[in-house]
Design a binder for these strands. Structure first.
Length: 186
DNA sequence: CCATGATCATTA
DNA sequence: TAATGATCATGG
């Protein structure tokens, strides 16, 4: 993937600083997309995400949670799960499993690519919706600042700020959620 | 500056 | 290792 990064003019850690999002940007290029910062699905009809995998007890498992989309408190209150960006992105997602080779890694092997179309009636979706509703209710009753990464079984509302004093929040998919997705797609 | 890409750091 | 919170590079 290093080669592809160079060929597409995407910096990895060349400048001495690591671009944490380079793998994701590469994937978007390969899919024929432009890098963009839209909150809507970044493809015409789908959302591309990459997830790092590593070995735990000899098995390949998701290394970390995966960011889904930003949370806008105003929109979260106004929209139900089925109307949310979260669902819009999730239902047409394309997952790319990438091997994790340590921080500032110069390597990145594409392990697996899988696309998945969730149905509104899927059991997992119902549980995810329950999580979304839980988080939404908490926002309404206790406020934006009461949301934490502890909330939710499949998805969580973690902090995700620009890192300069300001903090916002975003929906994240827990590791179990990621595993589940690959299980379903397989 | 902030949103989006996702990883890094800290603690237990 | 797992979980949660904080941070960084990039581009508009």
């Amino acid at each position: 993937m290093r080669e592809l990064a160079l060929r597409h003019g995407i910096t990895t850690y060349e400048t001495g600083k690591q671009n944490k999002g380079w793998k994701g940007l590469i994937l978007e290029r390969l899919a024929g997309l432009q890098t963009n910062i839209s909150k809507a699905p970044n493809g015409l009809t789908y959302e591309l995400k990459s997830v790092s995998f590593h070995y735990v007890k000899g098995k390949l498992v998701p290394k970390e949670t995966m960011a889904i989309t930003m949370i806008n408190s105003k929109e979260l209150k106004a929209h139900s799960f089925l109307e949310s960006h979260c669902w819009a992105k999730l239902k047409t997602i394309v997952f790319c499993a990438v091997m994790w080779h340590g921080k500032n890694s110069e390597k990145a092997e594409l392990l697996q690519v899988t696309s998945l179309d969730f149905a509104e009636t899927d059991e997992v979706i119902k549980e995810i919706k329950a999580d979304y509703d839980f988080i939404r209710n908490k926002l309404i009753k206790k406020g934006f600042n009461s949301l934490t990464g502890k909330d939710g079984k499949w998805i969580q509302a973690r902090t995700k700020g620009a890192g300069h004093g300001s903090t916002s929040r975003a929906f994240y998919a827990r590791k179990e959620m990621v595993k589940k997705i690959f299980t379903i797609a397989k």
